[in-house]
């Protein structure tokens, strides 16, 4: 049987679709968890799914969990000879369950492409990320209403970008036009919730064409420009209001930096990987007490530099930012990275 690649999904069918998919996959969808926050959560019947706005946190956590065990260890004392210690180390399994992220945004999908460039391209591959990534199907909803903080089109993606997604949904009256981008996406389209699209294709086309994004950034030459500004007081000035917290990095779909710590409980414990943030002093603090990035100015310089200079230089021009704007929207002091980049171009 040939699977049609374009189908219609009625909005009212979504709960039953997710329930059915839940029998074969772990299914995550944007769920209202408080009056003002929407987060990706494992779908359960009765939760309130919210598909008309950007989630508070991106889908990152599903493939790159904030806390993840790398190994467990146990020390055993030899009862015959208490001086002798036996150590057992057990590697955390790499296997990942089949997973669906339903209701991602193009910026979420783009975020994973940035992760891919670092974690799967080598020379060292991250086995935990890779196996989860392979096992995940991403169902993305196109953005018909970009927010004041959105700037995805400036960083090489856009509200109807299909890159990194397996199935894309265009919002139309009472539902969505579903288009499969990959084989994984086609597989989902076989569910009975997806019906013939008939004459809805044109409506979806019009919807896509109606999308407007106001914020446009000129990033021409910015990788070199940021390098030129490296030793100037520009960074101290633009980071003056930064409070050096990790909200921007933890809510960023492309921020992948992590910590590894041993969490001990008596003679046993775990080595865990947790999200870390380049905005924290401890991140680069050396055991000697020396810190190459001692103040928020150096740290902010590294964050902006990494995304808009180092990453594109290292990865064939790919900007390490997906333009979702969460770092602006969720910043306690509304520090606007777009403004910083504009000022960088004009500075001096």
């Amino acid at each position: 049987m040939v699977t049609p690649e374009v189908r219609f999904l009625a909005a009212e069918k979504i709960p039953t679709l997710l329930k059915r998919l839940g029998e074969r996959y772990r299914v995550f969808a944007p769920v209202k968890v408080s009056e003002t926050t929407v987060l990706f959560q494992e779908y359960r019947e009765g939760v309130q799914i919210v598909l008309d706005r950007q989630t508070t946190a991106p889908a990152k956590e599903i493939i790159f969990p904030q806390t993840e065990r790398l190994l467990s260890y146990t020390y055993r004392k030899d009862p015959e000879d208490p001086q002798k210690i036996e150590l057992q180390v057990e590697e955390a399994p790499q296997s990942a369950p089949r997973t669906i992220i339903f209701g991602a945004r193009p910026c979420d999908a783009r975020g994973f492409r940035v992760f891919d460039s670092v974690f799967t391209a080598g020379p060292y591959e991250d086995p935990y990320y890779s196996s989860r990534r392979q096992q995940t199907t991403i169902v993305t909803i196109f953005c018909t209403q970009p927010q004041n903080t959105c700037f995805c089109t400036s960083v090489g993606t856009g509200p109807t970008d299909t890159e990194g997604s397996d199935l894309v949904l265009t919002p139309i009256t009472e539902g969505y036009l579903a288009e499969a981008i990959t084989e994984k996406g086609k597989e989902l389209l076989q569910d009975e919730a997806f019906v013939s699209a008939q004459e809805r294709v044109e409506e979806a086309q019009r919807a896509k064409e109606g999308i407007k994004l106001e914020s446009e950034l000129d990033l021409e030459g910015i990788p070199q420009r940021l390098m030129e500004l490296f030793s100037t007081d520009f960074w101290e000035r633009v980071s003056a209001k930064c409070i050096s917290c990790g909200a921007c990095t933890y809510l960023c779909p492309t921020c992948y930096c992590f910590n590894i710590t041993d969490e001990a409980a008596g003679l046993e414990g775990e080595r865990v990987r947790t999200w870390d943030s380049c905005m924290f002093y401890q991140y680069t603090l050396e055991a000697s007490g020396h810190n190459p990035r001692p103040t928020k100015a150096e740290r902010y310089r590294n964050r902006v530099g990494h995304k808009f200079s180092y990453h594109p230089i290292n990865y064939e021009g790919m900007i390490g930012c997906c333009g979702c704007g969460r770092c602006i929207k969720s910043c306690p002091v509304s520090l606007d990275i777009r403004q910083v980049l504009r000022e960088a171009k004009a500075y001096g």
Binding site: F230, C257, F258, N259, T284, I313
Partner: peptide, 19 residues
Amino acid sequence: LERRMKCGVGLCGRCNIGT
């Protein structure tokens, strides 16, 4: 050079100097 390191394989981010 020395830097604080965690992963040791260029993934965890902290030991970069520029690129």
